[in-house]
Design a protein around this nucleic acid. Sequence first.
RNA 1: GCGCCCGUAGCUCAGUUGGAUAGAGCAGCGGACUUCUAAUCCGCAGGCCGCAGGUUCGAAUCCUGCCGGGCGCGCCA
Length: 582
Amino acid sequence: MLKLEDLLRKALLAAIEQYGVFEEDVDIVLEKPRESGHGDLSTNLALTLGGRLGRKPRELAGEIAAAVSLPREIIASVEIAGPGFINFRIAREHQIDRLLALLRSDGSLAAIKTGGGKRINVEFISANPTGPLNVVSARAGAFGMTLANLLDAIGFDAHAEYYVNDAGRQIKLLGRSLRAHYLQLAGRPVEFPENGYKGRYLEIMAAELLAKDSKAIQEAGAAFDDESFQRIELPCGDAATWGELPEDEAVGCFAKYALMKILGWQRETCRRFGLRFETWYFESELHETRRIERALERLKKQGAVYEQEDAVWFRSTDFGDEKDRVLVRSDGMPTYFLADIAYHYHKFQRGFEHAIDFWGPDHHGYIPRMQGAMKALGVPEGWLEIQILQQVTFLEDGRILDMSKRKGQFVTMDALMDEVGADVAKFLFLTRKPNSHLDFDLDLARQQSDVNPVLKVKYAHARSCSLLKNAAERGVEVGEPTAESLSHLEDESAWAVARELVRLPQVIVSAATSREPHRLTGYALEIATLYNQFYNQCKRILDQDPARRLALLHLSVVTGHVLRKVAELIGIEMPEAMEKRD
RNA sequence: GCGCCCGUAGCUCAGUUGGAUAGAGCAGCGGACUUCUAAUCCGCAGGCCGCAGGUUCGAAUCCUGCCGGGCGCGCCA
């Protein structure tokens, strides 16, 4: 695909030299016209050039079209149309080559690997470890993972990362909350902490701890066997004795236990959702390795810091923020902001050439100060890229669900997967672009019916598989598609599928570079629709004469391959058969 | 009040980074099952692309100003 565009660009450049226009003067845009009647590729070159040269675009287009020289076996026709578009129609032989190139390991999907193996860090979800993962994290999960997959697909080395805020007030509050639940269950009067976590999960956790005690602790700890979680350590002793400890110490033990349990849940939820994080980065590590102080020192050295009213401030107004921000509170505690600076600075030091963060819309006001801090630390402009994922509103019975964690009334990511399945959820999240709000109607998603676009895609895939299976059962030798077999592709509906299939490399590149993974789902749906149309149009493929039959079967081979490729990027299953529904 | 995001069919949203006659799904109406799996397909109807200016060959897309909605504006995280 890209090679073809280069060829056209070169030819067009040669054709416009006569007007004294050279490569550096123009940006030649080639795109697939919306209407297939307008050819396979189109350029607006004459339109943009017309104004500059003081010529009528349509006339100019005619001249350029006449001057452009292209090999016949690649470009079948060059036409001018509309106000001055130049439209190219790709020769059948070359379209077939492109279809075949999709299947080759050194083909068009290899050609888009232009990232040079550069390491890119993609951080997403990073929810507080104070409860089970909330559904609002699911969208970030789907986007982050798919973007990481896309970056890998274009030749980068993407590194999915989860930041764990396992230090600070929230954790203390978590410990106090669990302790209160535990003591209450043990029949001891205790005041529940203000703003404490009241979710059922903590009551259950407390009950389990009360019933099984050290055994529960051992079990929770045993869940962490891999490297990322070596920081997780068992709390001292057993729960029965924690109640006797001074409150501060007891809180520490309860907090450790709660953290261990909750991280276990969160990790399991991510696994179930198909999210593979290469690193779980713990905030506590930043404290232990003194990176927080070191980041502060560095900011001080740059003169970006001052003291006022016992607190330490970052001069973020120097970097376009609306006010300066506190780094160290007057009680001597570093703020979340400072820890986050240290974390991102360390991310930079770890050798990533680029970092992408996915944040919720409630954090957008945080961007200027974070970017300001990176700049102050000498991190190159643009190194940190922050993507804001807009809000998801969940609807049930036509009403908006309140997702507040604190009130203990929330829908978990696990509940979502129980209800609609991971694939449906992922696909639906990825049908909207990142910066538009998403209404997720649970009643609708629960229906395993045709309102679910993902099923349409899966069905199209299963259909292509069953067609091939039936062919085999009838003794038809299918084998691999070749230029010869596909040369018998005649049906217009089949070519409509083919033309869409060969766009795959471009779709991947554009989805990756624009950070808009939702283009993948749209593409998959388009393929499914076109394939269904084709399937309806070309009745009884297996009863056709052998040459045509083989061409259509081979088109199905490529279709299946492309759908699986997209599914792999999105992280969903593509079944070979669907259960028959009556 | 200031900042960010959004405003496209009755509903939920796409719109290939400024292109040709603005699309899809659902809902509505009418068709196609002696089926290679109908979870499908075909047709009809549905639009002031929030409003008003501007930029240019050309704007749903870019700029400005309004209107409407969401979110944010802590020594919280």
